[in-house]
Amino acid sequence: MPSETKKSRLTQSGLSDDAQPDERDHEPDAIALPAHVAGSGALDRLVDTARDYARAAASDNTLKAYGKDWAHFARWCRMKGIEPLPPSPELIGLYLADLAAPAGKVPALSVSTIERRLSGLGWNYAQRGFALDRKNRHIATVLAGIKRKHARPPVQKEAILRDDILAMVATLPYDLRGLRDRAILLLGYAGGLRRSEIVSLDLHKDDTPDSGGWIEIMDAGVLLTLNAKTGWREVEIGRGSSDQTCPVHALEQWLQFARIDFGPLFVRTSRDGKKALAARLSDKHVARLIKQTVLDAGIRAELPEKDRLALFSGHSLRAGLASSAEVDERHVQKQLGHASAEMTRRYQRRRDRFRVNLTKEAGL
């Protein structure tokens, strides 16, 4: 059991080692005044402001995941009768080994999930004022062995190519909901957008507090200003060759008939699909929309339905643009907001396979 002093300190900071993941466990409440500084109204306000900025340093989904990582590790420690604080590289090495090769019927975690758990522990320890040395041999060598023994090739979602996206939008009706979903698919595809980026857009700058960006429609296309995963960036989406496939035209149609003049760009509709509501659309809708239109369009129809659904996700739109656009790689990299060309190449599913035959070039 922790000492009374340690218990008190953790409780006061809102970071108890057995807090539930959806409580304050993932919040950076450890930010506080120094012990020797007396509190005041102005200083307390600044503490709250600093905590708000600290929370904004990572997305809500990341913070929730880190909270769950800590809750799992703390539970594991309790079951072993040991303390999670302060960090012990030897202990964490054992924890990683247990995740990779658990006893009994508990399924082993994938290497990527184990690495994410380790990142979560590092973040949580930092919030508690501790440093976790991931290069310590008790952690680094165990993780290297897990990778060598259990690593598998990365599972990538299938890219939605040109003919696929055309077939998918062709399945949509021309009611209000269909106009919205057509704009979502075409805009997401042409912009190489993440599903969270699509639904976070507002019509204008500063329309809503939870805005992730805004749009500006021009003669040549639409300019998106996004507060994305890697920071602020601009995405240019030009007009297409025909109204039937043009993402900008589809967006204009949705805005006109839904009478969107303020607030979220994509909102929910009434059950009959004839009226636009005020609530912002969830990013889960984008994933469901992609899967449903893939089925309706008969894409990869040779596979069972379960396998077809597993092949595609929101990232299929980004991979589709990267794989279909026959332009200089740097333009694709800029559109996707990637920091490196190597990351962009991961999205280019099968595009460059056997384009250059080194066997023949070598004289064989």
Rank of each mutant, 00 (worst) to 15 (best):
G145C: 10
I260G: 02
T225F: 01
G298A: 13
K275T: 14
E23P: 02
A35K: 15
V169C: 03
D60C: 07
I114F: 05
L179P: 01
S313Y: 03
S200T: 03
G41P: 11
L309Y: 00
A101E: 15
L224Y: 03
T359W: 09
V111Q: 06
P264G: 09
D48H: 10
A54F: 01
L99S: 07
Y347N: 11
I299A: 00
A339M: 07
V169N: 00
E23R: 05
K306T: 10
P153K: 14
L185Q: 03
D181I: 07
S59W: 01
A297E: 01
D261Q: 10
E158F: 01
A108R: 08
L176K: 03
S324R: 03
T269F: 02
D307Y: 00
L91I: 06
R194M: 10
A140F: 12
K275N: 04
S16K: 03
G39P: 15
I146V: 15
D44R: 11
P153E: 09
E302Y: 08
P21L: 07
L201K: 03
C246V: 14
V37P: 03
R349W: 04
W232R: 11
D210T: 11
H138R: 09
R55C: 06
R45P: 06
S340I: 05
D18L: 12
A258F: 15
I299Y: 00
L295C: 00
A131F: 09
A56M: 13
I114S: 01
A220M: 14
S323D: 11
R351N: 11
T293E: 05
T62H: 10
Y174R: 14
P209F: 08
L179Y: 09
S112T: 07
A131E: 14
S242Y: 03
K274S: 08
D133A: 07
H36N: 13
W214G: 04
C246W: 13
V169W: 00
P264C: 04
A30S: 13
A228V: 15
R233H: 07
I290T: 06
I290P: 01
S8F: 07
F312Q: 00
D272N: 08
K80G: 04
V332K: 01
E342F: 00
L99G: 05
S340N: 08
L43A: 14
D352W: 14
N124W: 09
R349F: 07
W76V: 02
A100H: 15
G231D: 14
L85T: 13
R280I: 09
K105L: 08
R288M: 12
M343W: 09
L121S: 05
D44G: 08
S242T: 14
I237A: 02
Y53T: 15
A131W: 13
E361V: 06
L161N: 02
M343F: 09
A190T: 03
V111Y: 08
Q253C: 12
Y347L: 15
E158P: 00
R308N: 00
P173T: 11
P21H: 12
S196Q: 08
L187Q: 00
N124S: 15
K306G: 04
W123M: 10
G240V: 15
A57R: 07
K135R: 12
K135Q: 12
A108W: 06
H138Y: 08
A74P: 01
S119H: 04
K157N: 00
I290A: 02
A276L: 04
G263F: 01
Q333H: 06
A301F: 10
S270W: 05
V286A: 05
G212L: 05
E361W: 06
R162V: 12
H150W: 15
A190Y: 09
